[in-house]
Structures are given as C-alpha cells and as structure tokens.
Nucleic acid binder design. Structure first.
Lengths: 192, 192
DNA sequence: CGCGTGATTGAAACCCTTCAAGTTTAGTGG
DNA sequence: CCACTAAACTTGAAGGGTTTCAATCACGCG
C-alpha cells in the first residue's frame, strides 16, 4: 500500500505490462515542509498520493483566516475533486505540513485508467463516496456538536494526526480558535 | 426534465427499446405531506427523483434535534448516497414537506444502467461531484460564516425554497435556532 | 543567547441559545 | 365560511459558549 496503484488496483491485479505503463505516468516527488502544491483559483488537474509525510488542504476566508479541510497522512489521496471533475477554479490550497514524498497523478491518467479498466471506476467511485461520507458527518458535527464534542470526536477518529500537527491547526480543522481549544484541553485534563 | 431518465441520459439519447426497458424499472409514487420514505438505521437502496413537490433529508441528533441536510424540489434527486454505495445503515431520514409525486429508483437499476451504458456512469459521477461541491461549501460556511451571512447565502442560492418551507426548517438547515433566524430577519428588514 | 512561533491564561465582548410569553398564521371541523 | 385550535413566528431577558484582545509562558532553532 505504498503506491497509488496499489490502492486503485486493490483486489484487481493487472498484468505486468499494464502496471508498467500506468506506473510510467506517475511522478514521484519530494516536497519540503511548507511547500505549496496547489493554490486557490487554479484549475486543478492533479491528485496527490502521500507515500511519506503529511499534506493538508485548506481554504482562506474573506477575513484572511485559514480553515483546514482535510489532513492527508501516509497512504491517503488528497485533491480538489470538484475542480478536477468539473474544471472550475479550485477553492482549496494544498500544501505540505511535513517534508513529504508524494506521487502526483494527472487527472488524465485517471481518465485513461478508468477507460481501460472498469474496476478503476468502481474503486475510485468508492473512494469518492467515502470522502462524501466524511463531509456528511462533518456537516452534522458542525451543526449539532459543541467544540468539545468535536474535539473528542477528532481524537477518536484521527489519533495519529493529533501528535503531528500544531494544535492551532486542529482548532482550524474543528472550526474554533486556538485559544478555545487550549481551554477545552485544559478543562479535560484537569478533570481527569 | 420531468423524469429521472431525462437527467441520466442527458445528451446521450438511447434507442427506444432501451428507454422502455429502463422506464419499466422506475416506480412512480404519490406521497402525502409528512410521509417518511426512509428512516435512520435502515439500509438504503433507493434514489428518489422529485417530479412534483418537495422532499428533504435530515438527521436527528443525540438531543433529539433535527438538522436538515438537503431540500429537494422539482427536478432534484435525493438519496443517502453513502448508504446506497457502501451498504451501511443510513444516518438520514427522508420525508415529504409537501404532497409530492416522485420516481423511486432502486440502486440495482442504476447499477444495471451503468453496466450497460457507460454514459450513465459519467453523468452520475458528475452528479456525485456536484453534490460534493455543495457539501464542501457548506462545511466552509459553517466554519467561517456568521448566522446572518449563512442566511443571506441561502437566500441567494435557494430563493425558491425560502417561500415554500417554514422558517424553522431554514434555521435547521443553517444550523441555528428558529428564534435566532427570526431576529436576524427582523434586523434585516428594519435596516432596509 | 535571543528570537519567533506556538500554547496558555484571563477579562471583556459578542453571538447565539434557552426559556418563556405573546402574537400571528394556517389548518380543520362544524 | 366562520370558529377554534395547533403550529409557526416574534420578542424579550438571562445565560452560556466562543471569540477577541492582550499578556505571559514554553520551546526549538539559528
């Protein structure tokens, strides 16, 4: 599971020639911490698979505040699916929170792969749906749960990410201020 | 555009036999105001196309409060895509806000149609992506915008729905209380 | 060592919720 | 078609959770 091909072909082994052809279209790249892969306003054409390290996508609102949309640690694919699919300017920035090794896949690669292997359609649709499920639960969370409940849910869902990013970024993901998160944490440990 | 087939086959005319075969799998139904089509916890297998009327999907949180996820007026498709795709119990209720005429499509219908007509895959993927774009903007809204900004955005985006549903349901969609929305409206009209 | 970034803490302000009461609107049965 | 009732909307006061602003502390890195 250290390549995007492993993910897309999961349970659907291809013959060797196909594999090599596909692999030749995938670029591997090392990115430095803080390096920006994609900016708001650009037409996105890429998917990024994280082999090693940590990426994130985020928006910057009218007041200049960052809101983190998604963290992508090892084994995850991150992209602006919307911009990729319907060719509208991206609303998202994507950058590296750690020095990372990634695979960059042009969307045309996917389109080709889908045309040639119907299993790829099934697998990528499933990934799309899973991403949608996350967004769905996140909307529910934001509408119905307090900051503390959201933080607890984040701890359960992404325990491995908590240790790797500054707390202010977790706050940004949860939709609260760093100060508020600090106070929540203070209250929780004191109670313990 | 008064049938789900029109939507899925858009720009891809099928021959008459195919059309009739597909149409035969689609059930048309009249539902009364308040009728529930799907409950939380069920395994969802259906998509609902609204020919006439208005449906909604919503969740009920731990405190018993409703949070509206989506309104579906004429021409829209509403479903729990997540439950349909990966066969987990649905988190959503779906019911009718008005007496409605709908088309009910079993997910196996879609799967057949997709297997037989690759264009259907393309069209339904696009619909999925569009739905994702809505969810994406909604997350951003909930994280970065005040109640009033969210309401104004809703007015711009769904001007036709505002007049058809009780305000408390718009409040429920926006993630605020009916009282808060009432005060926002009071302030806006007074200022005008 | 000293600087910059992140985390913490406190006080004040703000937005929204909760609760309660009163008013308007809409639906129903006579 | 009116009268009655329930539901929806409005309004106000009090309270809570979160933000904002500011000061302080902790830490890693040049």
């Amino acid at each position: 599971m250290n390549s995007i091909l492993d993910q897309l072909m999961l349970n659907f082994p291809l013959d060797k020639i196909d594999m090599e052809l596909l692999q030749s279209k995938i670029k591997t790249k090392h990115v430095a911490k803080g390096e920006i892969l994609q900016m708001k306003g650009e037409l996105s054409n890429n998917f990024y698979f994280v082999k090693q390290g940590l990426l994130r996508s985020y928006v910057i609102d009218d007041n200049g505040k960052e809101h983190i949309f998604m963290f992508a640690p090892e084994g995850w694919i991150i992209a602006d699916n919307v911009s990729n699919a319907i060719q509208v300017p991206s609303e998202l920035f994507i950058d590296a929170l750690e020095a990372s090794e990634i695979e960059i896949c042009n969307k045309h690669f996917f389109e080709e792969a889908m045309a040639q292997h119907s299993q790829v359609v099934a697998v990528s649709t499933k990934k799309l749906i899973n991403r949608m499920a996350v967004l769905q639960r996140r909307v529910i969370m934001l509408m119905s749960a307090s900051a503390m409940q959201r933080y607890e849910h984040f701890l359960e869902t992404y325990p491995n990410i908590v240790q790797r990013v500054p707390q202010k970024m977790i706050a940004s993901y949860l939709g609260i201020t760093p100060e508020a998160l600090s106070k929540i944490r203070g209250g929780m440990t004191r109670k313990k």
